[in-house]
Design a protein around this nucleic acid. Sequence first.
DNA 1: GGTGCGAATTAACCAGAATCAAGGTTCCGG
DNA 2: CCGGAACCTTGATTCTGGTTAATTCGCACC
Lengths: 250, 250
Amino acid sequence: MTANDLKFVVPAAPCGDESETERIVRLLGCIPLLSGLTRDELARFARGVRMQTAGRGSVLFHRGDPCHGFYLLLEGQVKLAFTSSEGHEKVIEIVRPGQSFGEAVMFMDKPYIVMAQALADCRLLHVAKKVVFEEMDRDPLFCRRIIASLSQRLHLLIADVETYSLHTARERIIGYLLREEELDGSPTPSGSVSLRLPTSKGTIASRLNLTQEHFSRILHELAESGLIVVEGRTIHIPDIEKLRTTRAHY
Amino acid sequence: MTANDLKFVVPAAPCGDESETERIVRLLGCIPLLSGLTRDELARFARGVRMQTAGRGSVLFHRGDPCHGFYLLLEGQVKLAFTSSEGHEKVIEIVRPGQSFGEAVMFMDKPYIVMAQALADCRLLHVAKKVVFEEMDRDPLFCRRIIASLSQRLHLLIADVETYSLHTARERIIGYLLREEELDGSPTPSGSVSLRLPTSKGTIASRLNLTQEHFSRILHELAESGLIVVEGRTIHIPDIEKLRTTRAHY
DNA sequence: GGTGCGAATTAACCAGAATCAAGGTTCCGG
DNA sequence: CCGGAACCTTGATTCTGGTTAATTCGCACC
């Protein structure tokens, strides 16, 4: 069982039968934004929570849709992306179970600027704007968490901008593999590590701001120079240190 | 007097002589983040505020420096940028008087990831982390403002990512000119508008993620097709509607 | 009126990445 | 076992934008 699994790991129910509210409270307590809140506080959220499923390919919201709350992904995979007028698409984030999305836009009175689409069959929670705002009025500590979370988001996005504008495609891909390895890699009997790409190569390519053709080619180059071994969606890295120090030149 | 001026417009002092604290309170009341706070609240901030000047070219902070507060620019111009190991530089924001910067990183215990450098002689206020956090504990409404401000920032940054990845250099430049015109343009006797670039072309080019050579070329192309007239740092736009609808093709 | 320096332009050339166009895999469902 | 649909790879070609370098412009300072 690796982090690549499409399920959000939560503590098991204390007993066989729990109420729907209890179940939701348990799930909510596991997301970074809400962990640390008391049972009672979480219960207040539960009133505004809607359990939801989405089949692979279905769109949760489009650009321009009004925002009524934020989402927590329990199971499956979601991509956030925008599309240009010419139909080109750019993925800005691949959301994994346990992550939330759509918060930032909730705090402004603006419609979504990105769209969200299920990459696999999903189960998610939708938390209504209303209960979030009510809790913000009540609990200053909750506000602090939101501020921390937004700052974090901002930080990551700036790092993305840096990557896009200062690194070549090759460097971006190596960087991606190293990050992916960190949270998902599993060591093999020999000294190497393996990792499985979380979704299709085309989608990952777009996330890294390149075409799938170019992504494919660079993967091939890296394989040719012995830095990685590609086996379908699985990538083996014989010597991770070598990969780490190779970021530049052919 | 246009928005291009390098001074932050604040209400004049009520009388000739006011105390240093009163002056700072007056200045603080004008920034979006703090406007709406009472006199007393602002006075609490004043304790943690330091007036500061920075000569053109001087660096306010480097990547990696610890963050002790945020800045408010009163006069002058500041760029936020990161530099790659090979010495390449990418400007992510050109800060104008009245804008604040460096807040986001203040809410995390991380060092700066960008550097800030004065593009002109500057006067600024530095607000200490400490008083911000104290006020956050005291005033939930202030927290709300911070949340709104961070969300706004996030929104703009995502729009930037979209621009970088979905638009060509030409489109980015036209988009920039149109935005700049909106907040700075001044109509001329004839039906056209003029605007003055806020800083050197090289810096603006970097902000738009291109080299100054390429920027120059495209400006030349636009001039050749009659969409703009370049006169040093001043750009004349004879027909803004035409520019607005021309975003694509040569 | 020089002198010197940073900013801007221009042109020739180059490289990274996109596009276009076939094929090839893999994995299903029938 | 066949046929189709995604997905991926590969090659040829084009293009956008970067690199390098030479020149000019604008301007502050002697």
